[in-house]
């Protein structure tokens, strides 16, 4: 493989990372809202929240992507395929992240909140000073895991015509008749990115770890 082709693969890998990172961040924001809705005592919020999680976790991502990609134009909304791809990835990861966050918020020790009540902290202050930081630390491993899953799942957006790492490998192997080479290189690049995320995640966990506290 010439240097030129390898550079093309790396450029496409950059696009894969960008797509995944943007989707994870949008998905985190949506996931927070879904999590808040699900934990709400108001049934008008908690039932749609539950339905969202069940639906987006119950349908294969490929089907979600094909549906969004074809539904939007049918409704008269014309968007580039990248936008449809990011929308699909974000909506899907939001459901998983909402579940992770729910687990985190529900594992905040009750005693800490009771103590906060005792010293007269407002509910908002309890959220920003106690519940959110602890829940975030508890969900960090799950978030790293989800980032890796989304990075791998982003290979599926190749079917709606977005040029990323998998699509680039597909195009190059079709034009060169060397699928073994290009798919192996693509796999190797995915592996390096995954291991980097996993390594960064465990580093962050160690830095956030504070012994003796929840």
């Amino acid at each position: 493989m010439s240097m030129r082709l390898f550079e093309l693969m790396l450029w496409a890998a950059g696009k894969t990372v960008l797509l995944s990172a943007v989707s994870i961040m949008i998905g985190f924001a949506i996931g927070l809202m879904v999590c808040a809705a699900k934990l709400s005592p108001n049934k008008l919020l908690s039932i749609p929240g539950r339905l969202y999680v069940s639906l987006f976790r119950g349908v294969p991502l490929l089907v979600q992507l094909l549906l969004i990609y074809n539904l939007l134009p049918a409704l008269g909304i014309m968007v580039p395929s990248v936008v449809a791809a990011i929308a699909g990835l974000s909506l899907c990861t939001a459901a998983y992240q909402a579940e992770n966050l729910r687990g985190g918020f529900q594992s905040v020790p009750r005693g800490l909140l009771e103590a906060a009540d005792m010293v007269g902290m407002s509910p908002w202050k309890q959220l920003t000073r106690i519940r959110a930081p602890i829940a975030f630390r508890l969900t960090l491993p799950a978030l790293v895991n989800e980032a890796i899953l989304i990075l791998k799942a982003s290979s599926l957006v190749s079917v709606v015509g977005v040029i990323e790492l998998t699509r680039m490998a597909q195009n190059l192997s079709a034009s060169s008749f060397r699928p073994l080479l290009f798919y192996s290189v693509a796999g190797g690049i995915y592996l390096v990115i995954c291991w980097t995320i996993a390594g960064g995640g465990s580093l962050a966990e160690r830095m956030l770890k504070t012994e003796g506290r929840a």
Partner: peptide, 22 residues
């Protein structure tokens, strides 16, 4: 670790399109 660190789709492509070459 290799199987868990690469997308299923890429593995399938490797098997289905790359397999005949070996």
């Amino acid at each position: 670790e290799i199987i868990r660190g690469t997308p299923f789709l890429v593995q399938l492509f490797l098997l289905y399109f790359g397999g005949p070459f070996i």
